[in-house]
């Protein structure tokens, strides 16, 4: 039989981990996992960028592309509920896997995805978020009056709780805003020092653990395309997505390590800052659940958050066992998630 060509749109430039390995590995895995039935070709970022992926997928141009709910929050309130809970983990592989299992097994999430016209396969996670700043941040007093860029609602609430001011700056303007002194720092993974060349302006990494950014669908599949595939082919896509996702998570960690070798000082946070952050996280879960109900009409938000926390714990344990071997993580996701899914009905 002749292979079917899927159109992939990574939506980012070639040196970004969201392209290589997230899509290059996916492209390599696809024919292997599908016995040669599926092939693919890549569309450039100038054709469809990540912020245009919603249109790209719904127009039918893109068969498989990454989907960031942050750009289109109104589409996926159920996914945002857990996706926005940044502070729950300190292990990116575990967060990616927990997210994958949660979304695959969450009926309300699947309903909103169906309405949006995409089929969910996999999530991955950024490396741990810290504060990258132009002035040193060690304890609570240093946070006072700081203007910090944030990229998500929970980070925003944390910055406010620490007595600093959260700011929204376009990601492309972060460098200029930092070097102008319009902002004092940015809450993100240290990998950004490399990806956005912030090392000329950022002098300090405050190594306080601020969790992860895991609200990402790595390989969202156009629902029409998904319907047209056989159950085996669907599983091949899901497994390929997971395999490339764990590699990309590793790649983020490598870049972070590289960034920390640059000319930046890494500052261990004081105990009061760590304690205040822990206190914030506990109380904020209630805030997140209440907001989800009031603002977006999500039912049983607290229960859903509790279930997600259980999954985070579960995957934390599995990840510890894997001890940094990402192929073992991919294997575990296949065993715990994909082998239990009935692909003749899933995501259709």
């Amino acid at each position: 039989a002749q292979a079917r060509d899927l159109r992939l749109a990574p939506g980012v430039v070639q040196f970004h981990p969201g392209y290589n390995p997230l899509y290059t590995e996916f492209q390599a895995q696809l024919p292997k996992q599908s016995d040669g039935k599926l092939n693919s070709r890549m569309l450039g970022v100038e054709a469809v960028s990540i912020s245009e992926m919603r249109t790209g997928l719904s127009s039918g141009l893109v068969d498989v592309g990454p989907f960031l709910p942050a750009y289109f929050p109104a589409d996926l309130p159920e996914m945002n509920l857990v996706g926005d809970l940044a502070f729950l983990g300190d292990d990116p592989q575990a967060m990616g896997a927990a997210m994958t299992e949660y979304i695959v097994t969450c009926g309300d999430c699947q309903a909103e995805l169906r309405k949006l016209g995409i089929s969910y396969t996999s999530s991955y996670s950024s490396n741990i978020y810290h504060v990258l700043s132009t002035k040193p941040i060690k304890d609570m007093a240093d946070m006072k009056g700081m203007r910090l860029r944030v990229g998500g609602p929970q980070f925003s609430r944390w910055v406010e709780a620490m007595g600093a001011t959260p700011v929204s700056t376009p990601v492309t303007e972060t460098f200029e805003a930092l070097s102008q002194g319009v902002i004092d720092g940015t809450v993100t993974s240290s990998a950004d020092i490399v990806s956005f060349r912030l090392d000329d302006t950022v002098g300090y990494i405050s190594a306080i653990n601020l969790g992860t950014y895991h609200s990402v669908i790595t390989h969202a599949v156009n629902a029409k395309t998904w319907k047209s595939l056989s159950a085996e082919e669907r599983k091949a896509i899901a497994v390929s997505a997971t395999m490339s996702g764990v590699l990309a998570t590793d790649r983020w960690a490598e870049i972070s390590a590289e960034a920390e070798q640059k000319d930046v000082e890494i500052i261990e946070p004081s105990e009061d800052l760590v304690a205040a952050t822990s206190a914030f996280v506990e109380s904020d879960l209630g805030v997140a659940a209440a907001q989800a109900g009031e603002r977006y009409g999500i039912e049983k938000a607290a229960e859903k958050i509790a279930r997600f926390r259980q999954l985070v714990d579960k995957w934390h344990a599995i990840s510890e066992e894997a001890a940094g071997d990402s192929s073992k993580m991919a294997e575990a996701v296949k065993r715990e998630v994909w082998d239990k899914v009935d692909f003749s009905t899933y995501g259709v």
Binding site: S51, T55, S58, G60, L61, P170, E173
Partner: peptide
């Protein structure tokens, strides 16, 4: 290349996406 529906829904998002930029 891709059919009228795809082309129109793909490109019709451009006016908004292009002008809604901070810079």
């Amino acid at each position: 290349m891709f059919g009228t529906d795809t082309a129109i829904s793909l490109l019709a998002a451009k006016p908004y996406d292009f002008v809604a930029k901070w810079t």
